[in-house]
Nucleic acid binder design. Structure first.
Lengths: 165, 165
DNA sequence: CGATAGAATCGAAGAAAATTCGGCACAGAG
DNA sequence: CTCTGTGCCGAATTTTCTTCGATTCTATCG
């Protein structure tokens, strides 16, 4: 029998209140998700088995969406970052979801926001150089008929993964 | 003797070229950083010990900056997100670094960008409700003498943690 | 072409950690 | 007070991690 992988729900289960131990777990795992369960339980003052059950419950409830790694973009040959504001054509507002789905498949896109206000999307991209960014805008944005306007800003510094107590 | 924790350099070491195996490691760990070393090595077709050495080298070289968890903000009572553009006073451009440092300490701030273009900063915040956002802007931005203008946009959808092949 | 030094990989053994599970303690309901 | 459900504990089991010497690969040099 294959080792059954416990299914993590995509959606956050409602009604899952977090106590101070849960919050401390999240805080510690945010800093180091590879911390051993023993070290975690010791820092919390509970038994390892209890701690493990907590973490599993947090995953099961969708509080922890996933464990991941923070990779330096420069190591992947993406030394430059940009933020691109995109406004869609007024008539194409129904294709916003589809537009977002397409963005997920583009390797240069690391994250994007669907926002209210003047613009519709804000896209965060990583690239080799400015030419690479220009190529991305031309190929994936300007060429798309639903896109009305774009505005690109270079990122000089990006700080992420901050605590949320 | 306490188990000495191998120090991970803050800065990316130059000259660390990634081969296709390294890239696959990063891809797989991005999806599930808690994947066992055995499963990882099996997916790569190398021995567990080799795989472990690779991962350690990637950490040591600063390619992997850290292992972390993706937590649903709603679980922490932060059901609403916003992006806030900030322009600083022309005379206070030297205090930009200090401004960023202060942002790191504010719990509502999950990430921020220091950008070129019309605005100087773009801040991503999570909050309980719109009043909470308004309070954040008043307390941490409008009240700061170096801040010239702000513009807040609500986030309807946020997709992050995309692959970067 | 062949030799050699260096680096990377492998495999197995020992150490450490995760996981399971039966029992216990506590809180709330009846 | 008793019952019941929930969460916690801790030891035994299973799995995984980690180390290390031997081997293979690779690129350079004679």
């Amino acid at each position: 029998m294959p080792p059954k992988r416990s299914r993590t729900p995509k959606e956050l289960q409602p009604g899952h209140e977090l106590d101070h131990i849960d919050r401390k777990i999240l805080d510690l795992l945010r800093d180091d998700a590879r911390m051993t369960n023993q070290a975690l339980s010791a820092a919390l003052g509970v038994a390892p088995s209890t701690c493990l059950a907590r973490v599993k419950a947090l995953q099961q409830a969708g509080v922890i969406r996933r464990f991941t790694v923070d990779v330096d973009p420069r190591a992947l040959g993406r030394g430059i970052e940009a933020l691109i504001s995109v406004r869609l054509r007024p008539g194409a507002r129904q294709q916003m979801v589809a537009f977002g789905e397409n963005l997920k498949k583009v390797p240069e896109v690391t994250q994007y926001f669907f926002v209210g206000g003047m613009d519709d999307f804000l896209i965060h991209v990583t690239a080799r150089d400015t030419d690479h960014i220009r190529q991305f805008v031309l190929e994936h944005l300007s060429a798309d008929p639903v896109v009305a306007t774009t505005q690109t800003s270079l990122v000089f510094d990006h700080v992420s993964g901050l605590a949320s107590h």
